[in-house]
Amino acid sequence: MFKRPHYVATLFVVLLVVGILNLPQPTSARLKLAISGLYLPLFGLVSFFQSTSHRLSDAFTPRQTLTQELDQLRREVQELQVQLRQQEEQNRANAQYREMLGFAKTAPWKLKAARVIGRDPANWWRSLQIDLGTRDGVRANLPVICAEGLVGRIESVSFNRSQVVLLGDPACRVAVLISETREHGVLVPGSTSQLDQTLVDLKYLPRNSQVKPGSSVVTSGQGGIFPKGIPVGTVGDVRQVGYELYTAARVKLAVDPSRVEEVWVVF
């Protein structure tokens, strides 16, 4: 049997929940950041242990292995320097042509490295926490990438931490482009992405789309958040949907969000 204290407690909780859920969005976001600020020492502790374990593993790596890695990295640096010189020449030519045609200048990306310090505790959202905040110049809606491609965008920012919504989350829909056919579409959460976070759906491709499995998908630059040309993934399979009004495809993301540990915020 329920007793009087049970009823009082239930009433209190219901009123509290209704009150909090009906807070204005900015107030709720600020409250959320204030509460999550309590976890700063624990996040700091985790970062400390991560960096200590990296340093320890470096300290115990045999000298021979380190020398081999160093030689390999030197070779890679030399190759990349050659590629960079070619790229610079192409960029210069590209800038000249754009100026001649009267196109707007494109600013180069500024990147800032961040470490992933937490993931969404709920299984029904895709988000993670990184160790950059307003003190590092991060603001909402900045794109987040890693070496393989697009990861997501900044959703909310506190002083020294930010929440990133990942590709595949309902809050992160991206306008994309098929590189080969130049057809536009929108990336939305996948119908089968609960276990495999690298699968998302690509919708609203033209009805008579020529897209084929294996085609590469990049950001289209439409929408104003993600710059054009960031690799997103490759097309897995293609099908007609919506009474054949448009074509949809499944896309295998270039980045596995569940395994990403370090990212770059694009300014």
């Binding site: 407690a9 509290l16 929940v17 909090i20 959320k32 999550s36 505790p121 988000s127």
Partner: peptide
Amino acid sequence: GLWQDSLSANPLGISILPLF
């Protein structure tokens, strides 16, 4: 519930009622 929601994309306060 508040602590959990503050680290999640959940609306703040949504986890309180199930836990209670």
